[in-house]
Nucleic acid binder design. Sequence first.
DNA 1: TCATTTATTAACAATTACTTAATCTTAATG
DNA 2: CATTAAGATTAAGTAATTGTTAATAAATGA
Lengths: 226, 226
Amino acid sequence: MRKIPKILVVDDDPDIVEILRYNLSLAGYEVKSASNGKECIKKAKLFLPQIILLDVMMPEMDGIEACSLLQKIPSLVNTRVIFLSARNEEYTQLSAFDAGADDYISKPVKPKILLKKITSIIKRINAVNKHEDIIKLDNIIIDRNKFLIIKNDVEIYLPKKEFELLFLLASQPGNVFTRDQIMNKVWGSEIIVGDRTIDVHIRKLREKIGDLCFKTIKGVGYKFIQ
Amino acid sequence: MRKIPKILVVDDDPDIVEILRYNLSLAGYEVKSASNGKECIKKAKLFLPQIILLDVMMPEMDGIEACSLLQKIPSLVNTRVIFLSARNEEYTQLSAFDAGADDYISKPVKPKILLKKITSIIKRINAVNKHEDIIKLDNIIIDRNKFLIIKNDVEIYLPKKEFELLFLLASQPGNVFTRDQIMNKVWGSEIIVGDRTIDVHIRKLREKIGDLCFKTIKGVGYKFIQ
DNA sequence: TCATTTATTAACAATTACTTAATCTTAATG
DNA sequence: CATTAAGATTAAGTAATTGTTAATAAATGA
């Protein structure tokens, strides 16, 4: 179910890249590499790794600068940057953190410890994205395991699509979901259905759950309000 | 608005506790301390810190054991454990990570680097679920996720174009946006509409948000003022 | 299989938003 | 202080989006 974590290794020394690649691949990660900052940025955008292992001193563009640029790429907000460097001066470390580093490890790297750190980071990332299967709000409980809604102590059963739609909207009460987002999350990106399909489902929900719970934001989408 | 991050310092050496407490307090964190693993568990449950700085070797209960126990406490799932230790053997570090550590720093600790690491962790914790799409000014909040304006505690819904226009202007209060800039950002470069369209939208905003908020710079454009 | 429920579509109605055009006001300039 | 150019205002027309209903298709379950 869970995707294989992706790691981008960036170092101008091919030997180090190879050692890291070997160890990380063996541990079950998907690894790609780059040999300088510029290449790092380019590959990171395409590869969207969970973790980037970044050397400091490299030709073309150093690690610190690359890290700063990485922070500005929206699709990489969840990517962690770990510096691996032989440079051990305090000011280098400090500027690495200023540039957005998540960690700074001095070379020589001990593979076992690096792997443990990576495991620990991946664990944290996954823990965050683990979605709750029960939404409890003031007067409504939405239980995805039972496909059951309890509103004011009354049980309501909904058909699948209606349930998914409600579940999505209620997952962030007050926040607008665009029609595109709804389409993608409830129907999936492959399935294409007509424009009015969402409206009709919203209408059914309004009938069953209450008109006032669903606010239309014209030109944008819908939101669930308590 | 955001809560002050809480840190629990755990070490049996009162001097180290004091140094850390001093530095962390100065940096604006709320600090509590414990002097062994048992006390750590007890205080962590009550204090619910974001971060625990944990020594390895302590009387009563060592850091590794404490860390293992901390992992089992549901209210502390989001608490990060950073080991600070004079013991530098690889196997100690490995067992720390196995016990659920998020990081392992060797003593002597460099306060500046520790602070940077903590900042970086806190940033990550706060970054979750946050999409920086909210503009908060003195008496107006513009929330793009909710497509909602809150002015003096009153909710105001705006149509899409008006919302986008306000959002743009308020993104840099006091700065003038030219008609061209507004056109490009709100309408897009392909769409061509007449000159008076912006005026009309500004007028609607003046009606709804307040006349004084929008200053016309003749021959240039508009700016949002607080 | 058949009955029933659920999902989707199509047609049209209703609503809301956007733009324009015509007119009025204001501010700057010589 | 008259002129002019830019902006403000208003109402009305146009466009776009959403709501509703009913019919049909697809899925589900006995």
